[in-house]
Simulated assay, not measured.
Amino acid sequence: MTAKILVSACLMGHAVRYDGQAKPLVHAALDRWRDEGRLVTVCPEMSAGMPVPRLAAEIGEGWSAADILSGKGQVRESNGTDVTGGFLQAARNALALAVETGCTHALLIDGSPSCGSGFVYDGSFSGRRQKDEGVTAALLKAHGIQVFSDRQIEELVAAIGH
């Protein structure tokens, strides 16, 4: 069976990021996988009903994605509003879509409190990064889906084997 890949909608050119922008990733493998019908595109936040544009959100200072998933932490918007519930719903929606469509791998935008897999912002809204992952990336990994950031497309190509 051919591996399916869950991919962040912003990487596919959809203007769904918090700031109303896209972050298109151009790579021959993405073109090939799209032509083969292997890509399943999702914006976890939009799947949970979050608007575009929306306020920036970060996992609260001192917390991790694991804390959020275990009910101990918060995701907050830049104005301090707790949006944890929306990010948990977003992660559950992405996982359900991945399972339903047979995705074994995910290619997600780094830095996002949902999709980050190498880093997220530290909750201070100062632009400082910390090594951690977003809520969606953590939930996908916990369910055996291999997660790659947009900076790891070559590693994803190698993992899939073609």
Rank of each mutant, 00 (worst) to 15 (best):
A3R: 14
A3M: 11
I5D: 01
L6Y: 12
V7H: 05
S8E: 03
A9T: 04
L11A: 03
L11Y: 06
G13S: 08
A15S: 12
A15E: 13
V16W: 07
R17S: 00
R17T: 04
R17N: 03
R17W: 04
R17V: 00
G20C: 06
A22K: 12
K23C: 08
K23R: 15
K23M: 07
P24I: 06
V26R: 14
A29N: 05
A29E: 03
L30N: 11
D31E: 13
R32H: 12
E36S: 08
G37S: 06
G37C: 07
R38A: 06
R38M: 04
R38T: 03
V40G: 05
V40M: 09
T41N: 04
T41E: 15
V42P: 00
C43T: 06
S47N: 09
S47D: 07
A48C: 02
A48W: 09
G49S: 01
P51D: 05
R54H: 00
R54V: 00
L55M: 13
L55K: 15
A56P: 13
A57F: 01
A57Q: 05
A57I: 01
G60F: 05
G60N: 12
G62C: 01
S64M: 09
D67S: 12
I68Y: 02
L69A: 10
L69C: 07
K72E: 08
G73D: 02
R76A: 10
S78Y: 00
S78W: 04
G80H: 03
G80C: 00
T81S: 11
T81W: 01
T81F: 00
T81N: 10
T84L: 02
F87K: 10
Q89L: 14
Q89E: 10
A91I: 11
N93L: 08
A94E: 08
A94G: 10
A94I: 10
L95E: 01
L97N: 08
A98V: 06
G102T: 04
T104D: 13
H105C: 08
H105P: 03
I109Y: 12
D110E: 07
G111P: 12
S112V: 02
S114H: 07
C115A: 11
C115L: 08
G116P: 07
G116I: 03
S117W: 09
V120M: 06
G123Q: 11
S124A: 13
S124V: 05
F125I: 08
R128A: 14
R129L: 02
Q130A: 12
K131F: 14
K131M: 14
E133I: 14
A137Q: 01
A138R: 15
L139D: 02
K141F: 01
Q146L: 11
F148H: 13
S149K: 12
S149F: 00
R151T: 14
R151G: 11
L156Q: 04
L156V: 02
V157D: 00
A158K: 14
G161W: 02
G161S: 03
H162D: 13
